[in-house]
Simulated scan of single mutants.
Amino acid sequence: MAIAQTADFDEYVLEVEFTAGSGTFAKVCGLTDFSVSRTNDTGSSMVPDCADESLPYYIKRAVTSQDISISATGVWALANHADMRDWWGAGSTLNVRVTNAAVTASGTAGDPEVETIPMILTALNNARTKGQVVTAEIELQQNGAATVTDIPA
């Protein structure tokens, strides 16, 4: 039996460039779960069958735009408290980097390895429950063109 090679939890990495333009990215400590959603927005047109216009129309679709969003949850680590509050408060766009370290280690030339996405921190939520530590939940929305870096040939 051949088992699929996959990325482990710690090999899928989310980092933020808290100082815009610095090229220095840092993990947001405490965010233990995150998901990246990539969507194609489409427009559609109804196209008739010219040989028999009584037939239902065909739908022709085209991609009109692409969007990436990230949701993350975890605990509220004090290490990034100021950075996250400042980002949210400024309403600014910062670069977010998503790296698949399994691809870095075992991929082949041309495999997408890193996505760098300009993003806005659109939601920053904290919650407390007696007997537990403060938790965090964030939402990030793309604001500009993403860059994909492939493993070089």
Rank of each mutant, 00 (worst) to 15 (best):
E53L: 14
W76V: 00
Y58G: 06
I68C: 09
Y58W: 02
L55Q: 09
W76F: 10
P56S: 03
C50N: 12
L78Y: 12
N80M: 05
G74S: 08
V75F: 11
S71V: 00
S54D: 06
I68Q: 03
T64A: 02
S69H: 02
V75L: 15
Y58V: 02
G74I: 04
Y58D: 08
I70L: 01
S65H: 01
D52M: 03
A51R: 08
Y57I: 00
I59Q: 12
D67S: 13
G74Y: 03
A51Q: 12
A79D: 15
L78H: 14
C50Q: 12
T64K: 11
D52I: 09
D52N: 11
L78D: 14
K60C: 00
A72T: 01
W76S: 13
T73L: 09
N80F: 01
S65N: 14
E53W: 07
Q66T: 10
A79I: 15
D49Y: 07
W76I: 00
Y57Q: 10
A77Y: 05
D67C: 05
V75I: 12
V63Y: 10
I68G: 02
A77L: 09
D67T: 02
N80W: 06
T64P: 01
S69D: 05
A79P: 14
A72L: 08
S54A: 13
I59K: 12
R61L: 00
I68A: 01
T73A: 15
S65V: 04
E53R: 14
G74T: 07
D52A: 03
S65R: 02
S71F: 02
C50K: 11
S69K: 03
A79E: 14
D49G: 01
S71L: 02
Y58H: 09
A72F: 11
A51M: 05
K60G: 00
Y58C: 00
I59R: 08
D52C: 04
Y58S: 11
V75W: 10
R61Q: 13
Y57L: 08
D67R: 06
Y58L: 08
A51P: 04
A62L: 06
Q66Y: 13
A72S: 14
W76R: 08
N80D: 14
E53Q: 10
A62T: 08
L55P: 00
A77S: 15
G74L: 08
Q66A: 14
V75M: 12
D52K: 12
L55F: 00
S71N: 12
